[in-house]
Amino acid sequence: MEVRTIKVFTTVDNINLHTQVVDMSMTYGQQFGPTYLDGADVTKIKPHNSHEGKTFYVLPNDDTLRVEAFEYYHTTDPSFLGRYMSALNHTKKWKYPQVNGLTSIKWADNNCYLATALLTLQQIELKFNPPALQDAYYRARAGEAANFCALILAYCNKTVGELGDVRETMSYLFQHANLDSCKRVLNVVCKTCGQQQTTLKGVEAVMYMGTLSYEQFKKGVQIPCTCGKQATKYLVQQESPFVMMSAPPAQYELKHGTFTCASEYTGNYQCGHYKHITSKETLYCIDGALLTKSSEYKGPITDVFYKENSYTTTIK
């Protein structure tokens, strides 16, 4: 009895394709271990004539594949690729409408935090270190965002349907971005203890939790000093293409032309909904596939993004 075979390709990165001759009487799992086709788990399936010449994702289970996976995804987590594939199996079914010149995501599976993050990423200057993220990001900007969303979920250790947080998501993504040249110098002034300067680099240099107003941050924000008295913390120097200011959701007025974009969060910790506000020729609110415009805006804002380049204080 002759062994019926077909020729397929296996890959971990969709760049390096490895030619395989597979036995049609055995499952993919018996031949390769966990195997995925377009995100779908085909591990328990036997090869079919229609699979001839198709590319299958496999887990990096030998040295060659491990090197290829690390170079593309910059992670050695053995569960990463499987999590990416199972997320992709959902995100490829989502709709990605162009809204006001940006790629958004039609609401499904509690994905409003991903839509808000995706919209924000198209408006701030950011370059990702893992080629996987950078490639998928370019495709997302062009309207094909399924891979990018699935990668975000995998890097953030999230599953489809789980509630997510924009600030946490951005923080994970910033860790995989090139923020080497970003720098922030802060000064804390206390009447009792004097003053202390701190220099922050990388992710810490672009994120701040405690106030939404970048102007206020430049002037000074009140913080408790270690001595128990009130101290003032203010920005001395900022070198970065953008800054992200966050605070627990509270009524906040966004003035046209003073910011790049913002995240609105309605609801409580267990259950809520994100919308995205962007400042173009007027203010726009993007909620999944829905767009509304207004000249002014007041609502429960939790993150505001500002364009920056270089700032030095005039406070002496």
Rank of each mutant, 00 (worst) to 15 (best):
E2G: 13
E2D: 12
V3K: 14
I6W: 06
I6F: 14
F9D: 09
F9H: 14
T10H: 05
V12C: 08
I15P: 05
T19D: 12
S25D: 15
G29W: 08
Q30P: 06
D41V: 05
K44A: 10
I45W: 14
K46T: 12
N49R: 12
N49E: 12
T55M: 08
F56W: 07
F56V: 09
L59M: 13
T64C: 13
T64D: 15
T64S: 13
R66S: 11
E71A: 13
Y72C: 04
H74V: 01
L81V: 14
L88M: 09
N89W: 12
K93W: 11
W94A: 07
W107T: 06
A108T: 08
A108N: 05
Y113P: 03
A117W: 01
L121H: 02
L121D: 05
I124A: 01
N129A: 08
P130I: 05
P130C: 09
D135M: 09
R141Q: 13
A142T: 14
A142S: 11
G143D: 02
A154H: 03
A154M: 03
Y155T: 02
Y155S: 01
N157Y: 12
K158V: 01
K158R: 01
G161V: 05
L163W: 07
R167F: 06
Y172I: 15
Q175V: 10
N178K: 11
L179E: 01
L186F: 14
N187A: 11
G194L: 01
T198C: 10
T199K: 06
G202V: 05
E204R: 12
M207P: 06
G210T: 01
S213H: 01
Q216V: 08
F217N: 01
V221A: 03
Q222R: 12
C227T: 01
G228M: 00
A231F: 01
T232P: 02
Q238N: 01
P241A: 10
M244K: 06
M245Q: 02
P249D: 08
P249F: 10
Q251I: 15
T258G: 09
T258F: 08
C261K: 02
C261W: 03
A262E: 03
A262W: 02
S263C: 13
N268A: 00
H273P: 02
S279G: 10
K280N: 12
K280D: 08
T282I: 06
T282G: 13
Y284A: 13
T292W: 05
G299R: 07
I301V: 10
S310G: 05
K316S: 15
K316E: 15
